[in-house]
């Protein structure tokens, strides 16, 4: 039952963060401030889902390293390609 309670709390947090993302859009922040805030909220949500719903917090760290590594590969492609035309 404790597990279900934890999962429910996380679900509520995810729900609220999704709503906040849209509110940030309408809050009238500077564009780049809003962008950073919205993407940061997405990142936090992703970490919560991966950590608790996919149980990465309870798995060996090597699995986390695997996923972080693949994300790093995608980021290298994205940032270097974008930088090449700036």
């Amino acid at each position: 039952m404790r597990k279900i309670k934890l999962y429910t709390i996380i679900y509520v947090v995810l729900f609220v963060f999704a709503t906040v993302q849209v509110l940030v859009e309408f809050a009238g922040f500077d564009y780049w401030t809003g962008l950073v805030a919205i993407l940061a909220l997405s990142a936090v949500k992703a970490v919560l889902v991966a950590g608790y719903y996919q149980h990465l917090v309870h798995e060996p760290r090597s699995l986390t390293a695997l996923m972080v590594g693949s994300l790093f590969v995608a980021l290298v492609l994205t940032t270097a390609a974008a930088f090449s035309i700036m």
């Binding site: 699995l63 695997l66 996923m67 590594g69 693949s70 994300l71 590969v73 995608a74 980021l75 492609l77 994205t78 390609a81 974008a82 035309i85 700036m86």
Partner: peptide, 23 residues
């Protein structure tokens, strides 16, 4: 998990393509 790692790069590349074209 290994399959998902490859899917991260697949979606990452698609999102990266979007970012690249938008830049």
């Amino acid at each position: 998990w290994i399959f998902l790692a490859s899917d991260v790069v697949l979606f990452g590349s698609l999102i990266g393509s979007y970012v690249f074209i938008r830049v």
